[in-house]
Nucleic acid binder design. Structure first.
Lengths: 92, 92
DNA sequence: CATGCTTACGGATCACGTAACCATG
DNA sequence: CATGGTTACGTGATCCGTAAGCATG
């Protein structure tokens, strides 16, 4: 489970659609397909139901969505806080 | 900022020593040196003070340490919860 | 000169994009 | 047959380990 995987997952979950999520992320569809598959394999359970219209979140996926958002929000705050510190003591 | 980077950072911070942290992580020192450097570059601020004895956390590093632990703990719970769900609906 | 961090370098793995493919309504 | 997800395949980037280098007490 990587942060990129979680970002991709959130985008797909929110769009309900690989194609639109790919546009939003500025990547192509195949990496998204693979990222979601890999995440499902790593966690050992399916996250989406594939329809001909798009991707619908399963209950376990719904729960992961809230967790993923928490994790990404925490990471983002951490980056912001570091950016604040870097004003006092820049790196190079 | 990746999860692996954060795990490495926590190990170095806790050991205060690249060599010991490397042993604990079962990798060699060079990847650790590079991971810490890259993290510092990405965040734009130094995290450790290099001494001839080892690595001492700077104040900004102290703060990142608590954040990193929060993030890793959250990721771990998420994995556990997924593992729970996977018992009901296995992936393949 | 022993200890501990860093730089150089080669090789394996990973992740992307393009293109071709498949399923369904 | 249009739409949307998947598989194949080649390439560039990333990350590791071994080996060599450098600083300091």
């Amino acid at each position: 489970m990587s942060l990129a995987q979680l970002e991709y997952f959130v985008a797909v979950a929110e769009e309900g659609h690989l194609t639109r999520a790919a546009e939003r992320l500025h990547i192509s569809q195949p990496p998204l397909t693979r990222a979601v598959q890999k995440l499902e394999q790593e966690l050992g359970l399916p996250l989406f139901e594939r329809t001909t219209r798009g991707m619908r979140l399963l209950p376990a996926g719904q729960h992961l969505l809230t967790r993923a958002r928490e994790i990404l929000r925490l990471v983002e705050s951490t980056r912001q806080e570091a950016a604040g510190h870097s004003q006092r003591s820049p790196f190079k």
